[in-house]
Amino acid sequence: MKRILVGIKRVVDYNVRIRIKPDGSGVLTDGVKMSVNPFDEIALEEALRIKERGAAEEVVVVTVGPADCQPQLRTCLAMGADRALHVQTDTALEPLATAGVLRSLIEREQPFLVLLGKQAIDDDNGQTGQMLAALWDRPQATFASKIELTEEKARVTREVDAGLETLEIDLPAVVTVDLRLNEPRYVKLPDIMKAKKKPLETLTLESLGVTPRTQLKTLRHEPPAQRSKGVRVNDAAELLAALKQKGLL
């Protein structure tokens, strides 16, 4: 079976303005709207489009996290994923451990392509895809804005600082996706009903033989330094005079 594995993460919705706990121990998440990480949603959309044009037969979505992650997996099933895997753990895994989990699932699922978002919008690490490619000893193409597949290869256009770079990689491979790859579809109500019947399998770290290591400890959270509000100027001439006075022109 030609299979695509898509990794997703449950994160605070991108529209929520986050607040730091008064004691600096973390970010307030009680009662906050949670969503599929937007970059991961783009990864799933791409997988679905690849399947819809006949270049894949099955799309499997996976997440690693606590029991609360199941609504996000159901959302992915409603978008069109065929089945979901939930590696359930209450430990917040570091990217290397998450990559280790995905690596062991690759053994099980044998995908020809693994798609992930380029980063999660909560911790902004941007590590998991590249780490997975290293552990798997397979090619990686990060920040993809275009993916063209042939039987054994992929041609991926990447958004890099210099502009757009194109790589050719042998499959199987890991591709992490950027914003402009596609626009994810909206989920329709009948699909949400159908998604309830799709298979969602729960796994444990032990069953995958993964013992996560903790190598990093977060000591405190702080709000960023604020810029103070400046002054209003009335016209172009006044603006230039102000900039000159500050020695900027």
């Binding site: 970010v27 919008i121 902004d124 702080e222 709000p223």
Partner: peptide, 10 residues
């Protein structure tokens, strides 16, 4: 983290 809306010390 969070697009610069929080700064953590690790």
């Amino acid at each position: 983290i969070y697009a610069g809306n929080a700064i953590i010390t690790v």
